[in-house]
Amino acid sequence: MAVEELVLRKLRPKDVVPFRCSQCGACCRNLRGQLMLESLDAYRLANYFRAHGCPDMEMVDVIDAYTDPSLLPGNYPIFLVRVQGPDDACVFLKEGACSVYAARPRACRLYPFTVDAGERGQDFSWYQCLERPFHFTGGTVLVKDWFYRNFSKEDRAFMLREWKILPPIGKLLRNLDDHQMDDAHREVILLQYSFFDQEMPFLPQYDRNAAELLRRLRRLNGGAGDGTT
């Protein structure tokens, strides 16, 4: 969930964790610098707003209205969900509840659990987020059931694609001079958050844009490769 480092405990699919969501809204507060909006999140939010009174909403409109830009190490541009109020609450938190609950970001659906790249032939590893221990009282959650309900096939396919393309993008960005970086950031933003048709499925468009992004970044590198084929 967080761009800042989380306190994590690795889980197995068969683990049972004490947890019950009390809808207290605590995980929607104190979020400054923490919740990154992924491109699939922005796509889903744009379609949610289209279905709820904003028929012309695009991904870039979601980015402009609800996020602030930031950079990961290596000059990789990202967007963080905007916060509001003295408690740095999520911009989507209205009257103590998520106003976009059906289209809330993947990180929010998984929290207080999260996922990372798998090991020993597995696609994913599962983790429990421990920085807010008061979550883990009452009720029980079977880990594999939680992820089955909240981590869709589309989410899984998207994350596997992201993990594959981010290393070569990062390498190409690191090879650029400072005067080339603005152009590179523009290409990343256009091809990951703008050049999508909201009426068409997300993943085929993502694949097309990812290939084009690598091509454009290689061109900025003077045609140099990134070590991938």
Rank of each mutant, 00 (worst) to 15 (best):
Arg44Asp: 13
Phe49Leu: 15
Met59Arg: 03
Leu45Arg: 08
Phe49Cys: 01
Glu58Asp: 00
Arg20Thr: 14
Ser99Trp: 06
Leu80His: 10
Phe19Thr: 04
Asp87Gly: 03
Ile78Thr: 14
Ser22Pro: 02
Phe49Asn: 01
Ala89Arg: 11
Ser39Glu: 15
Pro55Val: 14
Ile63Thr: 05
Arg29Met: 05
Phe49Ala: 03
Asn75Cys: 05
Pro73Arg: 06
Tyr76Leu: 12
Asp87Phe: 09
Ala26Gly: 04
Leu11Phe: 09
Pro13Cys: 09
Asp68Tyr: 02
Leu71Val: 05
Asn47Asp: 13
Pro86His: 11
Phe19Gly: 07
Cys90Tyr: 07
Gly74Lys: 07
Leu31Ala: 15
Ala65Thr: 06
Cys27Glu: 11
Asp68Ser: 12
Cys27Met: 05
Asp68Pro: 01
Cys90Val: 04
Ser39Ala: 15
Pro77Asp: 02
Arg32Ala: 11
Glu95Pro: 00
Phe92Gln: 11
Asn47Gly: 13
His52Met: 02
Ser39His: 07
Asn47Tyr: 07
Asp15Ala: 03
Val17His: 12
Val17Ile: 15
Tyr48Ile: 02
Arg50Trp: 05
Leu71Gly: 07
Arg44Leu: 12
Leu71Asp: 11
Gln23Lys: 04
Ser22Arg: 14
Arg44Thr: 08
Val91Phe: 13
Gly25Leu: 02
Arg82Cys: 05
Val62His: 04
Arg50Ala: 05
Tyr101Ile: 05
